[in-house]
Each structure stands twice: as C-alpha cells, then as structure tokens.
Amino acid sequence: MILVLVETGADGAAVTSLETLTFARQLAGRLGTQSVEAMVTGSLEAAATVRDQLAAQGVESVHHAGGPGMDRYSAGAWATALAAVPSDYVMAAGTPRGSEILAHVAARAGTSMAANVVDVVDTDPVTVSRQVMGGAAFEQMRVDGSPTVITVAGHAVEPADAARPSDPAWREFEPELTEADLATAVVRVEEGEADNTSALTGARVVVGAGRGVGGADDFDDLLELTDLLGATLGASRVVTSLGWRPHYEQIGQTGSRISPDVYIACGISGAVQHWAGCQSAKTIVAINTDADAPMVTGADYAIVGDLHEVVPAINEELRRRTAPDAAE
C-alpha cells in the first residue's frame, strides 16, 4: 500500500498533495499490486472538500489523525501518525513540511529517503529519479529499506482525477504521541511575509527583477508594470541579497517556485538556480540587453534592450489599450 500524506488548508488539499496522489496512483497502476491510501491530520477545516478531492483521486481509504496534539503542527507528531499505518511506500509532496515529516519517518525507520522524486524507474530494488542541483540535474538513486520513503517534486506530474472516483473508507484515529513528538510543536503563528510568498506562488502573472534593474531605487517602472497587469513582483537572488527587495520575493532554488501563466523576467541572466524556480511558467518573456543570456535563449519571447527603456514603453502601451476610450 502507498500511504500519501495530504497537507490541507482552508481551501482543501494543497495542489502539491494532489500532485503526489496522482503520482502515487500512476505508480500503483504500473505496479498492479499497490493501492493508495491517504493520511490527513488535525482539525481539518475543509473536511467535505478534502473528502471530495480524495475521492476524485481514487483513494481507497483515508486515515484522519486527530485528537489533542494533532491540531498544532509538529513534524514528530505527524511522523508518528504516518508510522501508525503500516505501508510499503510513504509519500509526501516535497514541501517544507512534507520533507521534514518524511525525514522523521525515515530516520526512525532507519530507511533511506529520496527527496524531490520525479519518477520511480525500477522497483527491484526501488530506484528513483530525483531532482538535484535545484532541478538542473537528476540523480538515479536506490532507495533502501521498508517502507520506501519518497517526497515528490513539485510539478513532477499534473494533478489529475482518477478515471473513476472512489468512495474512500474514512477512519478516524488518535495517534499515540510522545513528549518528544509534542516538544517541537508550533507555539503560535504570526502574520508575516509568508502571505506574500503565497501571492507569488499563486500568481497568474509574475514580473521578475534582476541585477539589471540597477539599484533599490530603480523599481518604479517594474512596480508600475506589476500594477497594470495585476501581477506580483519577484526577484533574483542577487536582488534580494543586495537588499534591493525582500527575500520573500525571491524566485529560484532557495526562493519560491512559481507557475504563472506569464513570467516576465527583466534584467535576469537566467542562472540554473533561477530557472529552478520559474521553469513551470507557461509563457516566459525575457527583457535583457544581452541576447545570449540563458534567460533569453530559454524564453518563449524576448525583447533585447534596456529594461528602463522597454518597460516604460510597455506600460504606456498597456495604459493606452486599457484606457476607456481605447479605439479597439
């Protein structure tokens, strides 16, 4: 059995968890001997939505770990919940929490753990392909021990419903938590930059700013473009580490991974670590003075030129077309 940890929020299951369920179902389909079950935890705000999503994914049963101790996040507690359901595979999305919880599962079970897996290439012994170098390369890795512990890379598969929905059995249980499980629980949640991070990962249009912008005081054109498009501003690591923009706007291996309809990269060279964060954008547009920059050669569309000339012209064109008396 493949046990999938499903992260949930006010809107139901996280997209990354739905991807992981799809990944698990496809593997089960190939193996023919495995079923997929899901683990959900805590007070489960959107229980009805989650149930529908899991049914659509064809999940056979759902284990809901509740009770005192499961309401506040603690990696150890969630790992204990997963370990309470014997399985052949334990999977989670390669999110911060998914990675943390599965590391606990693997450390306790004395098994290996493969992070950011994109494919299971063999099952005897279990061998996976997983992202390394922030997704710029792949490692074929043998995953030893039982259960097989795997986090699934974001966008490794598109979330897709099963051919036929299931009517999953729903089991409530209270895991037996230890003091150590609870010692690392979140004590409180403060409002903060995390909200802006989710704005970036959920944005339909992202305007990216790189070193080519020039300085912390040179963002007016880009901010206007962002405004005109109802977009979200993102940045390269150079821009955040020079303190021009806050870190939560960073896109890349050590920033956010975005998947907008359109990404407009301005003055960004396109290092592999930056591509790691933007390659899932549907359409990529680059504005750069260097026609040979990897951001340009890897883009769908590009303008070669100084962004401080090009972006104001785009803004003007946008204003013209969206003006109430535009002759179109």
Partner: peptide, 20 residues
C-alpha cells in the same frame, strides 16, 4: 532555443503586449 524575438528596444513593446 525556441525563443521568438519580439524586437529590440522600446519599439518592441506593442508586440509584447500582444503576447500578453
């Protein structure tokens, strides 16, 4: 590379807005 060059400098702005 399958990049479609929209042009050089500010003159290429309308082509970009068309893409959007």
């Amino acid at each position: 590379s399958t990049v479609h060059m929209l042009g050089e400098g500010p003159d290429a702005a309308p082509a970009l807005v068309d893409v959007l």
